[in-house]
Design a protein around this nucleic acid. Structure first.
Lengths: 116, 116
DNA sequence: TTGACGTATTCCGTTATGGGAATACGATGG
DNA sequence: CCATCGTATTCCCATAACGGAATACGTCAA
């Protein structure tokens, strides 16, 4: 426990949605609650895997579980996505406006020789 | 090269912005182009570290570099954030609407005993 | 050329993540 | 109580990812 290594982890919404499969799960859940098996099958992944992803999603609060008899129904709790939407939204004017500036870059690149 | 292990990597915008420090960098760049040293200092991180983060951001296309004499100026290219904004936006109605549904959950939790 | 400055990269160590397989749990129906 | 279904967890592996420190590069000035 000397070096710090990886700083953050899969403990916030940003990280949670960085995983494609988790995004898929969230997307599916918009249609309504679903048991793990359902999701796993629909997404073509093993049940354990789906469970793991759901765990992460649950820990960050993007998903809720509800026991329904023998099953456990997972449901979406999108509130955690709002901060993300807002953060990204803070760049909205840039992805429209930035073209002028980009032209400058592009022009420059021809002599700067972009590495890689 | 048997087990696949981690599927995706830090090769897309979603992953890029999963890192708090990279988000900070992007935020700073909204003010305009900046050399690495500047960013590093302002964010209280070492120069190598800043360079590494900028590399990731560059590889996903969220940032552009431009050689300016002895320096290299980094600039924002927010276009890559748009898809993210849209994806997350797809959940907008849920973080407002979902309260009704949440009530159901909450009511249920009292008997289901949410683990952890 | 040499030196200096600004910046990128490499090497190393640590951590954590995603996946697979097997297994442990929990609840329900007999 | 037992078998079973649905689901979560554990164990293990391979890999990638951050961080730090040292170092290699590239460019410009003298």
């Amino acid at each position: 426990m000397a070096a710090v290594a990886r700083a953050a982890t899969t403990s916030d919404a940003f990280n949670a949605i960085a995983e494609p499969q988790r995004r898929d799960i969230l997307a599916l859940l918009r249609a309504g609650e679903r048991p793990v098996t359902d999701l796993a099958q629909e997404l073509g992944m093993s049940q354990p895997r789906a469970s793991k992803h759901l765990r992460v999603l649950r820990e960050v609060g993007l998903v809720r579980v509800r026991g329904a008899g023998k099953q456990r129904l997972y449901g979406l709790d999108a509130r955690g996505l709002r901060p993300i939407h807002e953060w990204v939204g803070g760049f909205e004017r840039f992805w429209n406006e930035s073209f002028d500036r980009l032209d400058t870059y592009v022009r420059d690149l021809k002599q700067t020789r972009q590495e890689e």
